Simulated assay, not measured.
Amino acid sequence: MKVLVTGGGTGGHIYPALAFVKYVKSQDPSAEFLYVGGKRGLENKILPKTDIPFKTLEIQGFKRKLSFDNVKTVQLFIKSIHQAKKILKEFQPDVVIGTGGYVSGAVVYGAAKLKIPTIVHEQNSVPGITNKFLSRYVDRVALAFPDAAQFFPERKTVLVGNPRATEVRDVAKTSILSEYHLDPDKETVLIFGGSQGALKLNRAVVDALPRFAEKNYQVLYASGERYFEEIKKNLDFSLEELTNISVQPYIDKMAEVMANSSLLIGRAGATSIAEFTALGLPAILIPSPYVTNDHQTKNAQSLADHGAVKMIRDEELTGDLLVATIDEIMEDQQLRSSMAAASKEQGIPDAAERLYGLVKEVI
């Protein structure tokens, strides 16, 4: 089987694709893969570190305001379709899977026109413009959230979840928290705002740090590398004085840390949601207001409606509210258990298997 995977721009498009490739390789070592990304996306940093053959196309997104750049965008899109068709004819895939981003638009559209079986994977509860456009041409639309089905042709949609969940579902409890100078046997609250951090969340956490020091639970806080030094410099106390708090610029083994945590606080991106629901971890989500179609709020609300998470809007977030919401959950074992059960219920840990089944169905 030959599979061409395409998606780019952000980790939310790339990591599900890589998780799917990893799973298929475990099931069919003879399967061949090619990944096609954009020339300027994050995929250019991630894919070269893998053993997956990688090619790029020159493409860019539309500006929301009227701009001459949009003329260039159309020209690049038309050109990239021709380039994509050339790549497709050379590789001759049995199926093409698009996971989002403008580059997947050109590749999946080109594949559909060449009568190659096609699937798009939508990670969020509100789809992006690329997948909505492609849904008219593809054979199937694979969903991570059931709420997204309303935006696509009903006969094409299949709920599969996010393949990243399959990667983390079997992560076991370990002593990894000791690597961050914390007690592996103590209830732990994990706070992070993504790889780059989140300014509003960081301000609230810094304000709350002295109060966290007085709690029965411990806190592991990943600030993001660009905020770490600034935080250290502006604190009125030394981080070393806080025995039950660990502040880190970045957490490398995030899935393992999640598996050893009691509560997660962070943004509402599709990848982290797939991870913590696969583990059955309760969460407090602060959706980023700076994403397309406010999809993180929709992601978080979908989980909040089922009792899996508490949601705090970015504009309402303060240190006081953050501490109060954490305490509400950490001091009520029954509430935390019910949230954990709801989180597990909303997770789809066999997502990669489901997507693989869909691939075999369309080929």
Rank of each mutant, 00 (worst) to 15 (best):
K65M: 08
F54Q: 00
N70Q: 03
G61F: 01
D69C: 07
Q60G: 10
F54N: 01
L57G: 06
F62Y: 14
E90S: 03
K86G: 11
F77N: 08
T73L: 07
A84S: 15
T73N: 08
K65G: 04
E58Q: 13
F77E: 08
N70G: 05
F62P: 00
D69T: 12
S80T: 10
Q75S: 12
E58L: 12
F62A: 10
Q75D: 07
K86M: 09
I59G: 01
K55V: 07
Q75W: 08
L76Y: 05
F91T: 01
V71N: 05
N70V: 00
K85L: 02
K55I: 01
K79P: 10
H82M: 13
K89I: 08
A84R: 02
S67P: 08
E90A: 01
T56F: 01
R64H: 05
F62E: 08
K79F: 08
L66S: 04
Q75M: 13
S80I: 03
K79I: 11
F54I: 04
D69I: 11
Q60P: 03
F68S: 11
I87M: 14
K79M: 11
G61L: 02
L88S: 00
V71D: 06
I59F: 03
K85T: 08
K85S: 06
H82Q: 13
L88C: 07
K89E: 13
L88H: 02
I87N: 05
N70W: 01
K89T: 12
L66C: 06
L57D: 06
V71L: 15
S67C: 09
K79E: 14
Q83L: 06
F54Y: 15
I81Q: 11
N70S: 06
K55P: 00
H82D: 13
S80A: 14
L66V: 15
G61E: 01
E58V: 13
F54W: 10
E58I: 14
K63G: 00
K72D: 07
T56E: 04
A84K: 03
L66P: 12
V74I: 15
N70Y: 03
N70D: 10
P53F: 01
K79A: 14
I78K: 08
I78V: 15
K79W: 10
F91Q: 00
G61Y: 00
I78W: 09
K89M: 10
R64Y: 04
F54T: 03
F91S: 00
V74C: 07
T56L: 05
P53Y: 02
F91K: 00
V74E: 00
